[in-house]
Write a protein that binds this DNA or RNA. Structure first.
Lengths: 215, 215
DNA sequence: TAGATTGTTAATCGATTAACAATC
DNA sequence: TAGATTGTTAATCGATTAACAATC
């Protein structure tokens, strides 16, 4: 609750980038990296890198740079990768199946325990080593396995109902792939993974381009 | 090329939101909406709404508000929804199959013409009315059908190769679902749909929360 | 010691908000 | 006319950058 725990949102959004870059350097067996070099890799200014990193304490060694190993671990711990988090996927359509497996889950401390669906035809099947269970079993499953995160990959008609179910069963966070505005309690972490926004950006830019061409 | 065509990035990122909200009001048969009301729906300030919208000209009518129909159309046209865009999906795994169909493609002017994969076992299959073709046919297909956008849903080992292929064949934009840093020419629109960032944000927030609890 | 690089303070830049004259 | 609401200008806020003293 101290001010220290309040990392500005802008920095939080750069944290995964720092993490990936540091991991890269680690694999190259580097020991120290300067803010200048890190900035160059990330297309940021070195000033910003130093300012960002200074939020987490003094990791830099003057005239050497930053201890890569140390910083990498620190960032992993700030992002909570060291904490095991149980996750389920609601909806076992193609997207749900895709979400059931991801190379980075393990590194980030996530474990997908099960897929859930209403369709009897796919209940019992296994995708990427994850079994599809009947969605009616979900509430009990969430409680029993202390599931913290639910990925929501159901059709939009079912979205609100499923979200409510997950929240009422004790889930802390919803990783939301539906494109519907969803009502969730204020204390629930609700991350919208809105893919349509990506599409909009693309067509926006294509538009700019064709305009330029015509002129 | 004029200054007018340069809509600030921050506004562009709010455009899809405006679009969705206006669509909603349109369905409710509303004719005018005030900046105050629109702002409330979007959890923005009315000042910002007016400022944003003033970039596109004077749509507001003093003492009435904004003509919803008019504004909705204008924003659709700015985002290039009125322009038909051909798209292909590279990689016909679960994610690729999920990307082959999306309720909003049509409204936004996108059409998915085909899926591509290397696996002979799935070449020829159809998912959501879209056929899987041999990836070797992709270059010719892209040229012939004037494909502008390639969704990249291949394993990370193949990512760079596939991106290069798409770019060399004439694609304008890459909608990138790989979690690998990809090299693309400067004049190519490259949108990273990085899902891991969403996961990072979730664990970050969960971390904050458990910290608070302990204190 | 001279050179490199941090951590931090002050300056700058850009985006949001408040305020209000114009006007329907 | 009185009330509502825009479009825009000035004020504020927050984030980034430049600069530099501290120090390894």
């Amino acid at each position: 609750m101290s001010d220290k725990s309040q990392i500005p949102d802008k920095i939080i959004s750069r944290l995964p980038q720092y993490y990936v870059q540091l991991k890269r350097l680690l694999e190259k067996d580097c020991q120290y990296v300067s803010s200048e070099k890190l900035a160059e890799q990330m297309e940021l200014s070195s000033s910003l890198v130093r300012r960002d990193l200074s939020h987490f304490g003094s990791f830099g060694k003057k005239s050497y740079g930053y201890d890569i190993h140390c910083l990498h671990e620190k960032i992993a711990s700030i992002m909570g990768f060291t904490r095991e988090k149980n996750m389920i996927v609601l909806g076992a359509g193609y997207l749900g199946r895709a979400l059931a497996h991801n190379d980075s889950y393990e590194e980030r401390g996530y474990q997908v325990l099960a897929l859930f669906d209403v369709d009897p035809a796919i209940i019992g099947l296994e995708f990427n080593n994850t079994t599809v269970l009947d969605v009616d079993l979900a509430p009990e499953f969430i409680e029993e396995h202390e599931v913290e995160v639910a990925a929501l990959a159901v059709p939009f008609e079912a979205a609100q109902k499923m979200a409510d179910m997950a929240v009422n069963s004790g889930v802390q966070a919803i990783w939301d792939f539906t494109e519907t505005p969803l009502e969730t309690p204020q204390d629930i972490i609700h991350i919208e993974q809105n893919m349509n926004d990506g599409l909009c950006k693309i067509s926006c830019r294509l538009m700019d381009r064709s305009k330029t061409k015509t002129q």
